[in-house]
Design a protein around this nucleic acid. Sequence first.
DNA 1: ATCGTTGCAAACGGTTTGCAATTCG
DNA 2: CGAATTGCAAACCGTTTGCAACGAT
Lengths: 161, 161
Amino acid sequence: MSELSYFPGALNREDYAQKIAVLFSEHLEKNGLRLTTPRRKILNYLLKADRHLNQEEIYKSLRPQGIGRATVFRTIKMLEDSNLLSRISGISGPPKFEVHFERPHHDHLVCISCGSIQEIQWPKIEKIQEKACRKIGFEVKWHRHEIFGFCPQCAKRQKRT
Amino acid sequence: MSELSYFPGALNREDYAQKIAVLFSEHLEKNGLRLTTPRRKILNYLLKADRHLNQEEIYKSLRPQGIGRATVFRTIKMLEDSNLLSRISGISGPPKFEVHFERPHHDHLVCISCGSIQEIQWPKIEKIQEKACRKIGFEVKWHRHEIFGFCPQCAKRQKRT
DNA sequence: ATCGTTGCAAACGGTTTGCAATTCG
DNA sequence: CGAATTGCAAACCGTTTGCAACGAT
């Protein structure tokens, strides 16, 4: 994730992290909730992670600091509600998460052999999709587009054997 | 589903059902498995359903005939393995299933208000996708493309309130 | 006789919930 | 003080598995 470019001329990573934190606290406040220490820690951990994380990984890393599993789940849910975190369901196993940095929307290429997840941007597809849905009166809120197959490395290995 | 057109000049629904059954039994035979009565019943139930079904619905309908839950799960898995059944994960709750009738590949519009699932075909998107993946060496096996939002009816209701 | 298949019940794994103690405003 | 929040443990729910009985060659 880190090596991916953000919007041209846009905020740098730290500024984004800052912005996300603000957006989260605003969302919480709006709903009569509080930005507490555990919640802040979970968000920070997600923000500085350079990859997709699952609940277990977050929990294990933050457990030494006394954070419980339920809080991880609850915070993830709040972040999703506030539209700052997106969920990626792989081929199997628990879903992974990534913070919505403000960069172009991207979809995922999931390798069914090694499990790696690569990101891909498809502005063209987004447009077609949006247009077609508007035509039939369907109001798009978000979408999930996951391509399953073999990543370049695994595709090669597949052919060798 | 029923009102959707199949390939122009293609087989009618009953012939398709027949064909799927044959494909399934071939798949089973190839793997040293048998097309038993419970398996046939589950497939038939899926074939004559005009909508996406989840495991529970299949089980409940077939339970009176003595079919157990495990068999439903096991048969669903076999049908997926044989590429005759596809899984649709909605916004929440258990996944739903539909038989792969031999019609153009379609994606799904899932209404986050009423839960309805509408189908949509995007030959253009498929092409772009295929091309882009080939370029980066990713070998596509299948994909999941689900769009979440408000269906026409719910979008209207949303605006009224 | 053999080997796949079945339903059952128990186990499983990820997630949610009830609750008493705690924290924060 | 009062309301939101916490960690814990138990409950939950969809799914998988071990198993003894069964079924089909």
